[in-house]
Structures are given as structure tokens and as C-alpha cells.
Amino acid sequence: MTIKPNILISDPSLRDGNHAVRHQLTASQIERYCRLADAAGVPIVEVGHGNGIGASSLQLGLAAANDHQILSAARSALKRSLLGIHIIPGFATVDKDLKPALDAGVDVFRVAAHCTEADLTERFINFARNNGKTAYGVLMMSHMASPAVLLEEARKMEAYGAETLIIMDSAGHYLPNDVRERIETLVGGLGIPVGFHAHNNLGCAIANSITAVDAGATVLDGCARGFGAGAGNAQLEVLIAVLQKLGYETGIDLYGVLDLADFAEKELMDVVPTISSTSIVSGLSGVFSGFLKPATRIAEEYGVDARDIFFELGRRGVVAGQEDLILEVAQELARDKQVA
């Protein structure tokens, strides 16, 4: 068998999974999960509010534990694993959020922006690098840009000092060929490793992740039992099993990660992520799956169909952070219904 490159696994269960529980993960849950992840040899554990540090808000949901509590809990439990955070400029600032995160012992700063807004990340990437920390550039909602535009934006992040570039399929919109086209373009055009973050709205999270590796990606995000926004992410333990079967090395212990997933199912989540009908609509319409919970609640309140809300939001090209538009769309739909 040929030697295949090592795949670096980053586990955002305690960040993306926070979307699934309305950001209510507690410091104790975080600490216990981190202990098991550390024991299983997960290389990077990402924690925080679903939208990253500094994002706890009325707009996006208030977190049960504040950033300081989350980071302290994780730091105390992670010995071998690196501690990662997700940061979106516009929600967080360097002074208010990054400096305290640095003090709390964060190792990996994953600085994220909408796929066409990479220039917002410069200061944040610089800050992490200047303080001797690892900085990733993350392009969210990557299905909204062509492969050529993605590469152009990724090159900006590389120029700012990003050491790895991740694209996120935030809406779970990709099929494997979409992933291959983008990852091949990025791997061919960048001098830094490329990674992929999947969502499972159309049932393709594992297939898309494996396609990404096949196309040259060397970093993958996976969440225990798929714990993440909407339909969930690439299921970490499945990913490890499939990569093992394909002959890739991740350094993660299979039994350890299976135990980790059992723990996550029992101790972290209200329900195991499934592909609900609304998630399918979200994936098809290309709307961020974090809109699922507020849209369902507001749809019920206004007596309108959440699917109509999603297709209308998709038509408007909404991006994460525009949850306030759900109210407006629901109101309009309710009004139209009354008139009809």
C-alpha cells in the first residue's frame, strides 16, 4: 500500500455543536469532553459560542458560559490537544476578544470571514502570528463564490500570514464534484495546507470530506456524532473509521473517538443531529443551517411555512449574522397570506 499523507483532524464539536443547543454548553460539559478528546488524541479541539468568541448576543443567542469560562474549562483539560477558537471579525474585536483569548492559552486562531470578505481578517491573523500562535484563514459559505474567487480570497489570507486555509460548506450545499473543483483549485494555487469543513444537509458530509482529501486537502473538521448546526457536520468517528479504511493516518485512537462520540450523544446534545426536512430545504436553498432554529420558532409564531422562509432567504442571498431578516420575511409572508 502506498503511504498516504497524514490528515490533520480539527474537532469543532464544542463550537459548532453549540448551535444545536442554542449555545447552552456548560463549562463542565466542555471540560469533560475535552478530557476524552485529549485522551483519544484529537489534535485540535475548537470551543466557543457557535459563531465564535465574542459572538454571544441577542442576535445570535446568548451563551450559557462566557468565553472566559469556556476557554478556562477547555484549557485545564487539554494536555496534548491544541486549543482552537473560531473568530469572525465584525462580532469579535482584537482588544475585546482576542487579547483575552491569547491570555487564556488559545493555540490555534481560526479567523473566519464570509467567502468574499477575506480582507476583514488581516488584523486578526496578524495578531495571532505576532504573538507566536497558529493562525488559520477560514472562508465561510464558500458555495456563494466561484472557485476562482475563492482562490483570490484565500490568497489574501495566505498573504496576511494564514498557515492553513479552510473552506466551509456552511449550508451543506455541496455535492462531491463541487468540493473537488474547489479544493483542487485551492491546493493548486496556494502554498499552505487546505482543509474542508462539511455540513450534512444533503447527506454528503463524509463523502464530501473524503473527496476533499482525494483532491489534496490535508485538514478536515469533524464533530462527534455530527454535533453541529442544523443537520450536523461530518461525523467525526465515521470520518476516522473511513480514513483508517482508506489508509490515511490521523493519530486518533479509534476506540477513543468512539467513546468520545458516545459521551457527546449522552452528555452534550438534546437530540442526535438528523437530516430534517427543513435541513434539506436549507441545504438546497444554500442558506446557513444556523438559521434553522430561529426560523422554525418564528415560522410557528407567524403561522407561516419555514420552508417558504428559507427559499425567500436564499433568494435574498442572506449570510450568517442576518438572522434579523427572518422576522421581516415571516412578517411579509404572513401579510401576503392575509391578503390572499
Binding site: 442576535q59 465584525g90 464570509h114 442576518q322
Partner: peptide, 29 residues
Amino acid sequence: LDEYIHTTEAALKKFSGAQNAKAILNLNP
């Protein structure tokens, strides 16, 4: 962007008298 957030938050506190303020900016493509 950071100065935008800090300055907007200062104005919100000044004009509303609120104890805490948070500003968020989305650039929508």
C-alpha cells in the same frame, strides 16, 4: 472594523444609559 465596533458601543451607552452595549457589523456580499 474594530474601531467601528468600539465607537458604536461607546455611543450606544452614552445615548441610552445602558450598562452594557454590543455592536455587530455584517458586510453582506
